[in-house]
């Protein structure tokens, strides 16, 4: 149990870091789904199956689909580097 919690927390934090730091926005959306999925495993460990089911269906499924559809509509659906959103010169080192 202890090591499982440690592993799932590691996955969660790593995926959260990936959401904030990944240069590609599509990858960031995928990582945010991973955060939700790992969180739903944590909810099962914490004896909250209702919340886990909601988080898996809403957070990992629906929210990811909504984000990806919005990304497609923004024209940012691709595998390039999205850290420079402005066509102007900008030091996109975030």
């Amino acid at each position: 149990m202890y090591w499982m919690v440690l592993l799932v927390l590691f996955v969660t934090i790593t995926a959260a870091l990936a959401v904030l730091l990944a240069p590609n926005l599509l990858a960031a959306v995928a990582a945010s789904s991973v955060v939700s999925l790992a969180l739903s495993v944590l909810f099962v460990i914490l004896r909250a199956p209702d919340v886990a089911l909601t988080e898996a269906a809403v957070g990992a499924g629906l929210s990811g689909v909504i984000l990806a559809l919005a990304l497609r509509r923004l024209g940012l659906w691709g595998l390039g580097d999205d850290n420079r959103p402005a066509p102007a010169e900008g030091s996109g080192d975030a």
Binding site: P49, D50, A52, L53, T54, A57, V58, G61, L62
Partner: peptide, 10 residues
């Protein structure tokens, strides 16, 4: 476990 919100999303 489950209910209207989860099933509605499905």
């Amino acid at each position: 476990p489950g209910g209207g919100f989860q099933g509605g999303v499905i």
